[in-house]
Every structure is written in structure tokens, then in C-alpha cells.
Simulated scan of single mutants.
Amino acid sequence: MYQTKNINSHFAIILKHTSQSLMILLLISLFSCNKNVKNKMILSKDSDTVFWKRRVTEKNNKLIALKDIEESKGENFRFSTPNLIIDINSLKSHSIGKIIFFVQKMDDEQGLKMKQDIFKKEYNLTENQIKKIKLLIAQTKIKNLPSDKFIKGWNTNGNDGETYIFETKNDTLYTYKHYWSPDYQKRILEAQQVENFVNDLFKIIDIKKLETQFITNIPFKNYLMFY
């Protein structure tokens, strides 16, 4: 009787370790799949370097628990500013989209130290809004515009001002376009093109209404609008 219990005990231990090993292998497999998907993506020649992507986009995505665009299925368009992301995912049968507002908590005393607390709010885009945004993308040909460092006369030497980031992705091609302060650029047609696109995009989603709702509900005394 004692021997049977002992055998069962050993069997339970082996089964437990086997289950743990299988779980670890599954996690490694999932991680490898995501990594392989990223590795298969070709960065377009008119994209910015991965410097801004690693410094800003990947960091922010991790903080707000958002997948990098390369990990999603189908075709994607993603627009981002310091505390806002507009994401549209086009699948074979339908498209889905969302708007994400987010801020990071700063210390309550002087507002100088960042905390790990994040406040974010998501809003689903309506079918009509998605159609309008897709039409806007097509009509303005914004995807054809190169990143700001490739545009003659675009001043990229600055840390303040409004920065816009455009990402697109299909099965194999990935683009990452960075535009620093289009309103600061003088007599540059591409800068005006970006400004016009953003203004029309914000009208479609009624940015002022959503931003007011979001700011009203921020629970932090001091907060940072990310990069």
C-alpha cells in the first residue's frame, strides 16, 4: 500500500514537471512566432530608422499593452501622437478600428518622477468613420509620403512641438514615417499635406469631444503625455 502511494506520488511529480515544461515550450513557441513575423517584415526605403520606433513606439506599446503593428493580421494603418493612437485593422471580410488615449502618472508632489501607473481609454471607430478614414488615406495618398528626413528642407532638429507617426503594414511590407512639427516647417508642401490630413482625420473622429471626455476622467494629479 505504501509502495503504491509512493509510485503515485512520483508519477504526480513527473506529470507536474511535464506540464510545466510543455507550458514553457508553448510560450517559447509563441514568442518565436511573433519574432519570426517581425523578421519577415521588410522596412520600406522611405521609412525612418528604427531609432524612433524603439525609443517611442515600442516603448509606448509596451506601457499600454498594445501589440506592435507587425504582429497583427491583415493590413494595418496606425497613426500616433504623444497621447493618442488611431488604429485600423483591415481583414478579408471586415475592418475594425479603435482610438486610444493614454497618459502616464507623475509623482503627486512635484510632478517630476514617472510612475508605472497608466490611464488609458479606448473608443471603437464606427463603420462609417473607418470608411471615411480609408477614403481620406486614398485621396490624400498620405502613404506615398516619405518620412521627414527624406523631405528637402524639413527641419528635424527639435525636441518640442507636435510629432506625428504613421505606420502601415501588409503581409510583407512595413512602413514607419516620422514627421516632426509640420506646422513649424515653412513653405514645404509635404508639411502642409501632413497637417491637412491630420486636421481632416481629427474631424472624422471628433477629437475635441473625445479628448475632453478623456481628460475629465484622468485620475492623476500630475501626468505625462508620453514622448
Rank of each mutant, 00 (worst) to 15 (best):
D46N: 15
D46P: 13
D46R: 11
S47A: 07
S47R: 02
S47K: 07
S47F: 00
D48P: 01
D48N: 13
D48V: 00
T49V: 09
V50W: 06
F51G: 03
W52G: 02
W52N: 08
K53H: 11
R54D: 12
R54W: 04
R55T: 10
T57S: 02
E58K: 01
K59W: 02
N61V: 02
K62Y: 08
K62D: 07
A65W: 12
L66R: 15
L66M: 15
D68W: 06
D68A: 10
D68L: 13
D68N: 15
I69G: 07
I69R: 06
S72D: 13
S72I: 13
S72H: 14
K73D: 14
K73A: 12
G74C: 10
F77M: 06
R78Y: 02
R78G: 00
F79M: 04
F79N: 00
F79W: 08
F79S: 03
T81A: 13
T81R: 06
N83D: 14
L84K: 10
L84G: 10
L84P: 12
L84M: 13
I85V: 14
I85C: 00
I85H: 00
I85W: 07
I86C: 08
I86A: 03
D87M: 04
I88F: 05
N89Q: 10
N89L: 11
S90W: 00
S90Q: 07
S90M: 03
L91I: 04
L91G: 04
L91K: 07
K92F: 07
K92R: 01
S93T: 09
H94L: 11
H94D: 12
S95Q: 09
S95F: 04
I96C: 11
G97K: 05
G97I: 03
K98L: 14
K98W: 11
I99V: 15
I99S: 01
F101Q: 12
F101H: 12
F101M: 13
F102Q: 10
V103M: 01
Q104T: 12
K105F: 14
K105G: 13
M106E: 15
M106L: 15
D107A: 00
D108I: 09
E109S: 10
G111L: 05
G111C: 05
L112R: 06
K113T: 10
M114V: 05
K115V: 05
K115C: 12
Q116P: 02
Q116D: 06
Q116A: 01
I118N: 03
F119S: 01
F119G: 04
K120Q: 11
K120S: 12
K121P: 00
Y123T: 04
Y123G: 03
L125C: 08
L125K: 04
T126D: 06
N128S: 12
N128T: 13
N128M: 06
Q129G: 09
